[in-house]
Every structure is written in structure tokens, then in C-alpha cells.
């Protein structure tokens, strides 16, 4: 692959992903609320096609195009799916935290719906990312689970957010659910760095090096393409889940005029970006 093509790919995937996020925010404002008249089908199909194309390209680059790593051989190729998944999970949970804080500061069903969407999508990416991490552990450490600080902290994080989702299921009153889950979301997010440090200290006796230090620029490029593709996917997932959550919320709250739904303003946009 020529240098020009690489640069095009580098810039093009980033631009495509960031444009998709922008479109996603716009659709979230215009198309996602119930009874919206916006015809989003062409844009959505375009974004989905873009995500798929980039994902296939990224996976091909990861599986075939990049050289094998000096110490890890071919096994390291799992990072092209594992690392983007973890990044997306983190990103979704950061947005979730922002939504939780935002809801407590300013009551809005949109923030609540986005919090629900981000928690679920974050759980999805986190769960399969964790499974991939365990699969990676088998050939490199000889065992699926080595109590590696990253994996352990990640597993605790997933359990925390499963509990968050369970709380959302178990509370029927939508207003109480929104407030309580915001409180739980804030506490859970604050816990993540504490868990990280405590597990690191706990395991300080034999630390395992879990990322390859020798990085080829081609590897970085392949990783980036995969990550940007995942970002488009994340945007699409969040958008659809957010729309479902808004519709559910509207069905739950019987009196539409009592809804603080149509709060105009950029509160959602700022949290997505």
C-alpha cells in the first residue's frame, strides 16, 4: 500500500467517523423523538454501509495486511477487535456518566433515555471486549483468566453496570427510576478508578505485561481504522437505542403535557460530543 493511500485512509476514516458522529447527534435531535417527520432512512443506511465497509476493511487489514508481531506472533491480531471494543465501552460509559450528572442537574427525559442507551451499548462492547481479552490470554499467558488488573477491573465494571441495568428494570415509576439510576450511575462511574488502583495494588506481586510495546506504524493505522469503524457503529447503536428508550418513556408516562420531554436546547448535543 502506498504512502498516499495510507494517508488517505488515515484521514478519510477519521473524517467519516467524526462526520457520522455529527450526523448521529443531529438525527438524535431531529429523528429520534417520537412522531418525528424526518426521513432518516437514506442517512442511516449510508452510515451503516460506511460502518460495515470500514469494519471489513479494518478487519482485513488486521488479519492479513499487517505484519505479525515480534513476540506475540499472529495472536496479537486480536487487539484490532479487542481494543476498539474497550475504547467504545469506555466512551459510552463516560457519556453515561455525563447523562447521569446532567439529569440530576436538569430533569429531562432525553438525558435519561440517553443514559439508558449508553449503559446498554457500553455493556455490549465491554462484554465482548472482555471475552476477547480472555481469549487473548489463553495463548499469551497460558490461561484464560490470570487476574490481570485490566481484565479484573473490566469484569468488575461490567458487573457494576449490569446492576445499573437491573435497577432500571426493577423500578417502575419512570421519574424515580431516572433519579435513582442517575445516582447509581454516578457512584458506579466514580468507582471505576478506585477499582482500577485497588486491583493493581492487589496484583502488584506479579504484574503481567499485557500490551505489545513494539508497534509498527501499519499496526497503528489498522487499529485506527477499526476504532473509527467501531465509533460509527457505536453512534448507530446509541441512536437506535436512544430512540427506543424515548418511545418507551413516552408510552410509560401517560400524560404527555406533564412531560419535560420537549426541553429545547443543546443539552443532548453537548453530552454526545
Amino acid at each position: 500500500m502506498s504512502d498516499l493511500l495510507k494517508t488517505v485512509l488515515q484521514v478519510g476514516s477519521a473524517v467519516a467517523a467524526l462526520a457520522s458522529v455529527g450526523l448521529g447527534v443531529w438525527l438524535g435531535v431531529k429523528w429520534a423523538p417520537p412522531r418525528s417527520r424526518v426521513n432518516a432512512r437514506p442517512v442511516l443506511l449510508g452510515m451503516a454501509a460506511l460502518a460495515l465497509a470500514l469494519l471489513v476493511l479494518g478487519n482485513w487489514m488486521g488479519l492479513v495486511w499487517t505484519p505479525s508481531e515480534r513476540e506475540m506472533g499472529d495472536v496479537y491480531r486480536i487487539i484490532y477487535v479487542h481494543v476498539p471494543a474497550m475504547w467504545m465501552a469506555m466512551l459510552a460509559l463516560v457519556v453515561n456518566f455525563a447523562c447521569c450528572v446532567g439529569y440530576l442537574l436538569k430533569t429531562s427525559w432525553k438525558t435519561d433515555a440517553l443514559a439508558e442507551a449508553t449503559a446498554e451499548v457500553g455493556l455490549l462492547f465491554g462484554t465482548y471486549g472482555l471475552v476477547l481479552g480472555a481469549i487473548w490470554g489463553k495463548p499469551t499467558w497460558g490461561t484464560y483468566w490470570d487476574w490481570d488488573p485490566r481484565l479484573t477491573a473490566m469484569a468488575i465494571m461490567l458487573v457494576t453496570y449490569v446492576a445499573y441495568m437491573a435497577l432500571r428494570r426493577f423500578v417502575e415509576d419512570p421519574e424515580k427510576r431516572a433519579v435513582w439510576s442517575s445516582v447509581v450511575g454516578i457512584i458506579s462511574f466514580v468507582n471505576l478508578p478506585i477499582v482500577w488502583f485497588s486491583v493493581k495494588w492487589w496484583r502488584s506481586l506479579h504484574q503481567v505485561q499485557s500490551t505489545p510495546k513494539t508497534v509498527d506504524p501499519d499496526m497503528t493505522l489498522a487499529l485506527r481504522v477499526n476504532a473509527w469503524a467501531s465509533l460509527i457503529l457505536l453512534t448507530l447503536f446509541l441512536l437506535h437505542r436512544y430512540r427506543t428508550a424515548l418511545a418507551t418513556r413516552e408510552a410509560e408516562v401517560a400524560l404527555p403535557e406533564a412531560l419535560p420531554t420537549d426541553v429545547p436546547g443543546p443539552n443532548r448535543a453537548s453530552e454526545v460530543a
Partner: peptide, 27 residues
């Protein structure tokens, strides 16, 4: 240098694609 291990790589990629497409289906 770790030799082979392609079965783990395939398993990982298949799991990734399966979870993404299943979630898309559920949405």
C-alpha cells in the same frame, strides 16, 4: 515468539461480529 494461534484469532473475530450483529438484530 508465539507460533500459530489462528484458532484464537478466528474465535475472537467471530465473537465480535456475532455480538455486534445480534445486538443490531435486537435493536
Amino acid at each position: 515468539r508465539i507460533q500459530g494461534g489462528w484458532e484464537y484469532i478466528w474465535a475472537a473475530y467471530i465473537i465480535a461480529w456475532a455480538s455486534l450483529s445480534l445486538y443490531a438484530l435486537s435493536l
